[in-house]
Simulated assay, not measured.
Amino acid sequence: MINNILAVLVHSSNKKTLDILSSILSGDDIKVTTVATNKDIKEAFENENFDIFICQNDPLEKETEQLVSTFLSHYHSMLTCKIGDEENLGDFNCDFFIRTKDLSDEHNLQVLLRNVITFAKKQRIQSELAALLLHDLRSPAQSIIGYLELLEKEIFGELNDGQHQILQNAVTLSDRLIYLLEELSQIYRFEQKDFALNISRIQLREFIDIALRTLWVQADKKNIKFVPQIAKDLPVISADGLALERVLINLLTNAIKFSPEKGTVRIYVDKSENYLGEPSIRFRIADSGEGIPTERLNAIFDKYYRLKADRRQTKGMGLGLYISKLIVEAHGGQIGVYNNREGGSTFYFTLPLSPYVKREPT
């Protein structure tokens, strides 16, 4: 069943503005939360999922800009609307913009906000219908695999070599379809915040050793050598082990795939600081391939990157990297990539020692 209640967060340091916006937005199908301080913004984002964030910038304080930008990176499906002057737009992008002078024109303001609400409702419906479709597709796809496997095992009669090969190809393609559906479902859950990180204590050296052993056979087929360089004084961290393992294995798999025969994949893990100066753990995976075209570095983690770029050059760098980005950001970390001067590229991600963790949905 589709949830028709929209959650709207409104921020302004001006109480009159908060009252005006709250009065216009309030309704049976809209839940409005108003905040005036940085502390209020942080508490609101940590305790609830929002469909729309409306923010008056006049202009925003730098600390508020950074706080909002950080939380926006966790809310990929949330619409943002700024109210202010064009010269004070701030550093983070928005989906809608309302001029300050429109606050004094109640009728015009109602029309503008109604358009934002209408768009958000349509987006919500499309998103939830997509989730239902993904769920409904998984069961018949799994049934198809079951029938194909019965045929391949000759339950209904003998097959020749050509028929076996065709069925094997069909099963392989069906498995890929199931995997794709699962990735799309996971993306939806992350973007909608319909998930909770399963936090546990992780011994990093043991964790990394397991990931490398998992991919040893894959690397050995290309005679690729793993060269781990792990700092000795790494602390135990709190993170979702399975989710973090997916990130590390995905980056290592890409490094193997894009490194040449008899190449090298280097793994660096050490203590560092994030962009806020907070103590963090930094992971770097450096391959020995050809590197990534400079103009594509900024798009490499985009969900639609494989659709925009050349398929041959981006094989394996599509949804996996986007999911990795969602997982790292859910831990309060950052992920990125750069080309090495000596050739190849390095994917990195950081995890704060005291990560921001979204509370479980209620």
Rank of each mutant, 00 (worst) to 15 (best):
A131W: 08
T118W: 05
R284M: 13
I285T: 05
G291D: 00
V236N: 10
G146I: 04
Q123R: 14
E191K: 07
D175S: 09
M317E: 06
T346M: 06
G291R: 00
L132M: 12
K232G: 07
Q218M: 08
I30W: 09
D136G: 04
L72W: 08
N88Y: 14
F53C: 03
I166H: 13
E360S: 14
G320C: 04
V10I: 01
Y75M: 08
Q218S: 13
T17I: 13
A243Y: 02
S69E: 07
E128K: 03
L215K: 01
F96L: 04
H135G: 11
I267F: 08
V247P: 02
Y304M: 09
G333C: 00
L60W: 03
I52R: 02
R99W: 14
S69L: 11
N274F: 00
L109Y: 09
T346G: 03
G162Q: 15
N160D: 08
S139N: 10
E183G: 08
N93V: 07
Y322F: 15
E128I: 05
Q163D: 14
R124G: 00
A255H: 06
I199N: 00
L109H: 04
N3H: 05
G332M: 03
Y304Q: 12
D175P: 00
N198A: 12
S104M: 12
L321R: 06
L79E: 11
F226R: 02
N198L: 13
G333R: 00
I300A: 03
L351P: 00
L151K: 04
T70S: 15
A299Y: 14
A7M: 09
W216F: 13
K15L: 13
R266V: 12
S104Y: 15
I224Y: 04
D40F: 04
E290C: 08
Q192Y: 05
C55L: 04
L297W: 03
T362A: 15
N198F: 11
A7N: 10
A299N: 10
M78P: 03
H11W: 04
L177A: 15
L167P: 02
H107G: 03
E86Y: 14
E261C: 08
I98C: 01
N250Q: 14
E295A: 14
I327R: 07
L79D: 07
I256S: 04
I199Q: 02
E106F: 13
M317C: 03
S238W: 08
G316T: 13
V337L: 06
K31R: 12
K39H: 11
I5L: 14
L297A: 02
K271Y: 03
K315M: 10
L89N: 12
I20S: 01
T314V: 05
Q123C: 05
K153L: 08
D102V: 08
K221P: 01
I98P: 01
